[in-house]
Simulated scan of single mutants.
Amino acid sequence: MNQAELGAALRALRQASGKEAKAVARSAVMSTAKLSKIENGRVAPATADVERILTVLDVSPEIKAEYLAVARAQATEATAWRLFRRMGYHKKQEQIRALESSMALLRLFQPSLVPGLLQTPEYIRAVLEPKGLTEAQLFRTVSARIDRQRVLYDTSKVLRFVVTEPVLRWRLLPPAMMAGQLDRIVSVSRLPNVDVRVVPLDAPQRDVPGHSFVIRDDRVVTVETTHAEVVVTDPRDVSLYVEKFDRFASVSITGDAMRDLVEGIRDAFLRERETP
């Protein structure tokens, strides 16, 4: 099945479902024009696009697996951030939320920033402000990311985070706000379906961080670079990221030991705030 055939097959599934294109596009977090281009074979859909469409159409697991296998034939997809900005970063957050709603397992490695699902509103704003958004755009994107965080409380999902110790010390906010961000990490780490780990600076290492990445259900990896978001779906490549995640998880600390480390850094921020 090629690109045109995949689009035609998706259109046939939608028509068989009795759902209008506008309703499917809205639920799949894309424009009706984009859905039309996919269905008519004029644009190659990203794997995430196909998955959202199939989820809305409520197809059988067998059909979903077959169609996703075709979508993954193009193993790596890159979308420039300028395109997301044109679309609206809040729309990107809505797309991620739709993807996370259908996953069972998330594994996230982050050597640079507090992961988005763990960020406080103040931290989110600090991350987004260099992007030059208007106040209205900033408000909508912050709100959309906070809305995504509801997935943390869905006990049908397992969420695993591994961050490096410098993430906890990187001063994107004033000391008091950084202390609040670290409190947030400690609080979320106590949720029964959430595992937060920290790779301490004094731990012997067998690997180098490189960059952040997110693995969802052993099926898709998302990598954020300076200019674009890269999506990897070839199982051979996905397995490389799973192995890298496991290596860092194996040298990280979790549970009370992790919370002791985070709270120690938090207390240092608080003492700094209190210093005349």
Rank of each mutant, 00 (worst) to 15 (best):
Q3G: 10
Q3K: 11
R11F: 04
Q15L: 14
A16F: 12
G18D: 08
M30R: 02
A33V: 15
K37H: 13
I38K: 07
A44N: 11
T47S: 14
D49K: 03
D49H: 00
L54H: 06
L57P: 01
L57H: 09
S60F: 13
K64L: 12
Y67E: 00
A73E: 13
Q74L: 06
A75N: 03
T79I: 08
R85T: 10
R86L: 12
Y89E: 07
H90E: 15
H90V: 07
K91R: 15
K92H: 12
E94W: 11
E94P: 08
E100I: 07
S102E: 09
L106W: 00
L108K: 06
L108A: 03
Q110P: 04
L117D: 05
L117H: 00
I124L: 14
E129S: 15
E129M: 14
Q137G: 11
F139K: 14
V142E: 12
S156V: 03
V158C: 07
L159G: 01
V162R: 00
V162D: 04
T164S: 06
R169K: 11
W170R: 15
W170D: 09
L173I: 04
P174S: 06
P175Q: 13
L182Y: 01
L182A: 05
D183E: 15
R190D: 08
N193M: 06
N193Y: 04
V194Y: 05
R197N: 12
R197E: 02
L201Q: 10
L201C: 05
D202W: 02
D202C: 05
V208L: 15
G210Q: 05
F213C: 13
R219L: 10
V220W: 05
V221K: 06
E224M: 09
T233W: 03
R236C: 04
V238R: 02
S239H: 08
V242S: 06
F245P: 00
R247F: 12
S252K: 03
T254F: 01
R259Q: 07
G264Q: 08
G264D: 00
I265M: 03
A268Y: 04
